[in-house]
Simulated assay, not measured.
Amino acid sequence: MDPRFTALLGGLTLASSLPAQAQKASPETQAIQQTVTTFFDGMRRGDSTMVRRTLAPGAVFHGFGGKPGQPTKLEIENINGFLKAVGTPHAEIWDERVQFEKVLIDANLACVWAPYEFYLGSKFSHCGYDSFQLVKLADGWKIAHIIDTRRKEKCK
């Protein structure tokens, strides 16, 4: 076989494997995504203890939305009220389905940008984007802040 052809074939093989390697998330990114996934798994299960374990001390939740035809409002959500609601039995599973669009990390600070769709059981409720700020503490990545948008239209 011609050595130039062999070198070209080897180069193409190497080049074709690079995108697959570039798409694999780093261990830190995977750990951050796991924290967010655990938060939503706990919400789906109605397990407020599981959700609480993903939160940093002093975590803050904000909602950014409003009713159609009214001005958009920034609302602070009560975390203890949220955790109580999660742990209180409800007829439908709270199923927030996120996609990890972007994860940014600098040292012990991370930001997750994630479009989502929210379902009550199997019924679509609303969609938007979640923005998570996470901090790396002694016991791993914890959610320090969540802010989201909420709407019923212009979803997917």
Rank of each mutant, 00 (worst) to 15 (best):
R4A: 12
L12K: 05
T54F: 04
S131Q: 05
V86L: 10
I143S: 06
L55M: 15
G11R: 07
K154I: 02
A85L: 14
K156Y: 13
S131T: 15
Q34H: 13
P19I: 01
G46P: 13
G121T: 11
F40T: 07
K123E: 13
G63Q: 12
S122G: 00
C111F: 15
M50W: 05
T35I: 11
G87F: 03
N108M: 02
G128F: 02
K136L: 05
G11H: 05
G63E: 07
G121E: 08
S16F: 11
T49D: 07
R44L: 13
I76Q: 11
Q33Y: 04
A56Y: 00
E101V: 03
E28I: 12
R150L: 11
G128C: 07
T35W: 07
E101H: 09
H62S: 04
M1T: 06
A144T: 12
S122Q: 06
H126P: 08
D95Y: 00
V135A: 10
F64A: 10
T72L: 14
Y129F: 09
I147H: 01
F64W: 13
D106Q: 13
K24V: 12
I93D: 03
L18P: 03
V98F: 00
G69Y: 07
Q70T: 14
G81V: 07
R53T: 15
I93P: 02
S48R: 15
F61V: 11
E92N: 08
Q70K: 13
Y119S: 03
T37F: 02
F64G: 03
G81D: 01
V103I: 13
P115N: 13
A22S: 05
